[in-house]
Design a protein around this nucleic acid. Structure first.
Lengths: 192, 192
DNA sequence: ACCAGCATGTAGCAATCGCTACATGCAAGA
DNA sequence: TCTTGCATGTAGCGATTGCTACATGCTGGT
């Protein structure tokens, strides 16, 4: 039982490093110093195993999204903060996991769409709340949150895949600048 | 020889419909009324086959990107135009192909990164040119082009995967609005 | 002491993968 | 007519896939 949780953590680490899409039980088991036999024994099936790992990933993500410090008091600053958070190793790994899940969702939506949505919620909800806290109208917040989320995803994907990370950085900076000039009106009315 | 091109077109259609990642020769051959034996015979290997299909895809994409009409005279209008172009069936298929290629690139960058870049160039280059035509400074154009490209990609991915396409539409509209308010200054100085 | 049950190793099964060896039909050139 | 070479069918190879049948330790309860 404890062994099971231990294995789940190992599986998640392996998936974050090697990707979810080509995942094969035998190499995974070898990396975890066990056998495919035991993975099936503990998790019932490959699907159960992946489900467990994804649940753990969502849990980790939810607790790791630190609320930004008080110096982040602007939508533009928030975007810059999120972009830098997406830049470290675990951010890149999360991006890749999201990418793999998206492909799986296009292949078999009935099975994977919910997983994508679940992995995304730890970002979407706090972002919406943060926006209204910055004075964005409640009506505009969802669309803006989705825009920010989608843009950061697209740029993170670009940085992950393309050879030139500086290109994505410049684009993200341009995005933040775009929101910056916007911060006077008609949003952010209650800023100092 | 002609048969080869004919098959390549069929392969591309199949890939656009079923995705590139799970691609298997036997079902593909069956759909094309031939055999895996003949696919290997004509293209040498699976890699050669995929390469041929991707080259064809890039070629199709390059010729299908119609320059927008004269009513598109703003960056915001351009974004709206591109977003609607990404919305039809072939746009969604292209998005999915780009998504699959991105995953392959994370798995084996040496082999696939160039393919991603190649499939992207038919969008990136015209977009840059279009921006400078709208009066964006040459220095800012690349970053803005990458921002637009990345944002549209991220939102298209969202629309492709998530259950609610209206959500992505709203976010794209917000993006266009964001660029709209910006069209006075400091960009677009030479507008009418 | 004995037995139940969990944990684990060994071996293998049916399916699928890309790819190949071999044979064969057919059409054009000498 | 004979030969050469392209196009195609049949069969199969070795590897890998998720998963299972079976045997075997080891450990705790009675």
């Amino acid at each position: 039982m404890d062994r099971r949780a231990e294995l789940a953590a190992g599986v998640l680490d392996y998936v974050l490093e090697h990707g979810l899409i080509g995942l094969s039980l035998r190499p995974l088991a070898a990396a975890l110093n066990t056998s495919d036999r035991m993975l099936i024994y503990h998790f019932g099936s490959k699907e159960g195993l992946v489900g467990e790992a994804l649940a753990l990933a969502q849990q980790r993500l939810a607790t790791s999204i630190a609320p930004p410090g008080p110096e982040v008091d602007t939508v533009a600053a928030l975007v810059r903060y999120l972009w830098s958070a997406l830049g470290d190793v675990s951010g890149a790994q999360a991006t890749r996991l999201y990418l793999d899940l998206s492909v799986l969702a296009t292949q078999d939506p009935a099975r994977w769409r919910a997983a994508v949505e679940r992995l995304r919620s730890p970002w979407r909800e706090p972002l919406r709340m943060g926006l209204v806290a910055f004075g964005i109208e409640e009506k505009e917040a969802p669309a803006l949150a989705d825009l920010i989320l989608g843009t950061l995803d697209g740029l993170a994907l670009d940085r992950l895949v393309a050879g030139d990370p500086a290109r994505a950085d410049a684009a993200a900076a341009a995005f933040a600048d775009l929101l910056e000039l916007r911060s006077d009106d008609p949003w952010g009315r209650n800023r100092s």
